[in-house]
Design a protein around this nucleic acid. Sequence first.
DNA 1: TCTCCACCCGACCGGTCGGTTTGTAAACCG
DNA 2: CGGTTTACAAACCGACCGGTCGGGTGGAGA
Lengths: 202, 202
Amino acid sequence: MPPNPTLEKIRKSQILDAALRTMAARGANGVTMEDVATASGLSKGGLVHYFPSKAELFKETFREFFNRIFLRGQETMNQCADPLDKLLSFTWILERDDPDIKVGYPLLFDGMSLATHDPEYGSIFRDWFNNWVVMLKLALNEGNESGRFAVADPDGTARAISAIYQGIATRWFLDPETHSTAWAKGFVRLSVTRLVGLEPDE
Amino acid sequence: MPPNPTLEKIRKSQILDAALRTMAARGANGVTMEDVATASGLSKGGLVHYFPSKAELFKETFREFFNRIFLRGQETMNQCADPLDKLLSFTWILERDDPDIKVGYPLLFDGMSLATHDPEYGSIFRDWFNNWVVMLKLALNEGNESGRFAVADPDGTARAISAIYQGIATRWFLDPETHSTAWAKGFVRLSVTRLVGLEPDE
DNA sequence: TCTCCACCCGACCGGTCGGTTTGTAAACCG
DNA sequence: CGGTTTACAAACCGACCGGTCGGGTGGAGA
């Protein structure tokens, strides 16, 4: 029986998906190889056949998921024409019912915690942050060129916008009782709009 | 040998301090009772004598540390008279050499990660967030009353300011190469100032 | 048909860790 | 001064976990 690349792809995506679900549900450091194995419908031996190392499996899971999230953001942003709309197009990260979102924040927090102590996770997240910054900077430059914005420091502003999204989303996720979705969306809009020198509702 | 309350206080604070250091250095979930024991100059048995449960020791460490940080923030803020200065008085959380700061972010990220899956950690952090919000709201109301601000929603704005601080500080800590302290302080100032309806440098 | 190998299973091993138990020295009390 | 309790230390136990290993199965090739 020669190696079957199709099957391998299927299995690996099965496994990564199962790892994602279990890690989001119980926290990355509470997840066992056995957990992932059963969640992906394999035995421990079967899992190890595809991912010999737990550390690699987990890192791959992070990379895969955050890449997906970024692509989704890129897609959403590019559906907007106005540069301010582009900057404000990421409110889908504030939808409590979205499956990506439900899974995303636990993973994000686990990842940042890991990034503090493990340089490999550090670079995963730095790269990820940087992708967002590059994308936001495009919209900022676009707005500057069209005369709509007057942003002196597009790079710094892009980083600030990205950070503000994350800061507000963090509170919104960790304390939903006192941080409603309306609050989160409203203050993202207000902060970002004012940061590029405009007023909301205009 | 009768119980010695003085010694118990000394030992407990030794232990909590050691736990803090090791947790910040290696990440909360990579720390062993034995690690904390040796770091506090005790044996495992000695440690367990004072903290019979690892979970309780760790939670107590979180509570103790974040309470200290909050008190420090309160103290710093109250040294400012102007309400805008008060809102901007937390830049000490952006000092890379400060020992509290070096230890604080690893603990914060670990804590948020734990809060996602453990309701007890959840309430620790919700309470903590809320303390900051209450404090910021005082400064906002003060500014509103003196006519310096015109903030329509002090509660929401306080939450947003707190979130913005955290968002910017997170990037500043996790990716110092591309997020300088000047960037962080500058954009905190700009975002917060504009949020309360003012312009910086005035 | 026989062989071989990819695929997968599950028992097992070595090590780690939280917590318990046992031991002991010292401080206090009657 | 004997008995008791505290404050540790150190050996130990049992559970768990990551990774290994031997084996079994079934399809592809000789």
